[in-house]
């Protein structure tokens, strides 16, 4: 139930980011300076934390999506759906533990 809610909420949020992301990337066709000015806003600390949240949403949606595929296509998927959910959460924690320090270092580390 909660995995279903979280899958729906993260999918909804990711879709709206995707619309904005295609628009901001399209600025490469306007002028290099225009693109650089707008993508520059992605580099401030507040946006950096937003990106961490976005990646968290994507990572959960990805692993839980693979769990849904296993439940639907693997003969033992339904039987192990609860175990699979704990595996999803475990993979989520491991992936974010790999991503977050590196990303936060990029965002907050001076250079």
């Amino acid at each position: 139930m909660w995995s279903w809610v979280a899958h729906r909420v993260t999918g909804f949020a990711i879709f709206f980011f995707l619309l904005v992301h295609v628009l901001d990337t399209s600025l490469v066709r306007v002028a290099p300076e225009t693109y650089n000015a707008v993508i520059g806003t992605y580099k401030n600390p507040v946006m950096g934390l937003g990106e961490a949240g976005l990646v968290a949403a994507i990572v959960f949606h990805a692993f839980n999506g693979l769990r849904i595929v296993l439940i639907d296509f693997w003969s033992k998927g339904v039987k192990y759906q609860k175990v699979l959910f704990w595996i999803v959460l475990g993979l989520f924690v491991v992936t974010m533990a790999g991503f977050l320090p590196r990303h936060l270092m990029h965002v907050f580390g001076g250079n």
Partner: peptide, 25 residues
């Protein structure tokens, strides 16, 4: 999409200089 987007996120946000290195070039 798991493969495509994880690859996209790794190359753009993790490898190299991360989000701060993204520009027109």
């Amino acid at each position: 999409l798991v493969v495509l987007i994880f690859g996209h996120l790794f190359v753009n946000l993790v490898a190299g200089g991360g989000v701060k290195a993204i520009d027109f070039a």
